[in-house]
């Protein structure tokens, strides 16, 4: 019964993604939605999608929630962490017990920070394109239940959907240059962080609240997050039009 409900939910997610892959779709927004779906479907506490940049370092491109503590946890994984292991080896690292010194011996700093944030287990699933690793899907749990084989298979399917999503982005020229698409996605993410700062200062809210208002406005007006951020930063858009959070 539970299995059925989940299969149906998965089918809905595939539909949602397929519907979204229009010519001008918003890769950041879709990846963010996908992260929240991972949380729902796998019953984990948080999910994030990390991509390797031109220098082979992992950067977060989307997360199930925008809490700065969570973003910082992803950011710790430049040189070390389960996602780095997973990205380098191309193998999934699952059911890692963050409370076990043995399991986290290779990256104690990351494990400490993750525990401080309230997480007790983590998983890293590779994002693979043919024979190349391009990043990782990172899951965190606040409760210690194990993910079973079917959960892992599902996580891998979702990682595959994320990969497809990233590589479907439209580039200026139609050539299918995957590496530049990864770069564009990562740069768009930075742009969104910058606009979060601008809006949270204007409104005197937290960056999370600013992001929520920003995204709500973008979604209801069919604006791509990166485009919308660009026009706000350029001063081409009067942000007074966005409902201020908490007012």
């Amino acid at each position: 019964m539970i299995g059925m409900a989940r299969e149906q939910r998965l089918a809905e997610i595939f539909m949602e993604v397929a519907d979204s892959l229009t010519e001008d779709f918003d890769v950041l927004d879709l990846l963010q939605r996908l992260s929240t779906r991972c949380v729902e479907l796998l019953d984990v506490s948080a999910a994030g999608i990390l991509l390797a940049d031109a220098l082979g370092e992992l950067q977060v491109v989307a997360a199930s929630d925008e809490h700065t503590r969570l973003l910082e946890l992803f950011a710790l994984q430049h040189h070390q962490g389960p996602c780095v292991d997973c990205y380098r080896s191309g193998a999934a690292r699952t059911n890692i017990d963050l409370t076990s010194p043995g399991a986290t011996a290779n990256w104690p700093r990351f494990a400490t920070r993750a525990r401080e944030t309230g997480y007790v287990a983590t998983h890293a699933i590779p994002l693979r394109l043919r024979d190349r690793n391009i990043g990782a899907l990172n899951l965190f749990q606040k409760s210690p239940h194990q993910l079973g084989e079917s959960d892992i298979a599902l996580a891998k399917a979702l990682a595959g959907v994320a990969t497809i999503t990233i590589l479907q982005q439209r580039t200026l020229e139609q050539s299918h240059i995957e590496r530049t698409q990864l770069q564009t996605a990562l740069n768009s993410r930075i742009l969104v962080e910058q606009v979060k700062g601008i809006l949270s200062e204007r409104w005197q809210t937290s960056p999370d609240e600013a992001f929520f208002a920003f995204r709500s406005y973008a979604r209801s007006n069919h604006l791509r997050l990166a485009d919308f951020a660009t026009s706000i930063i350029a001063g081409d858009f009067d942000t007074a039009a966005i409902p201020v959070p908490g007012s």
């Binding site: 606009v195 200062e201 960056p207």
Partner: peptide, 23 residues
């Protein structure tokens, strides 16, 4: 010289950049 210092990749740095630009 291999790239922007790692610190430049952190979300808080970009958020703070936005905040300071308004301040």
């Amino acid at each position: 010289v291999m790239g922007p210092p790692m610190e430049l990749h952190r979300a808080v740095v970009h958020q703070a950049t936005g905040m300071v630009s308004v301040q």
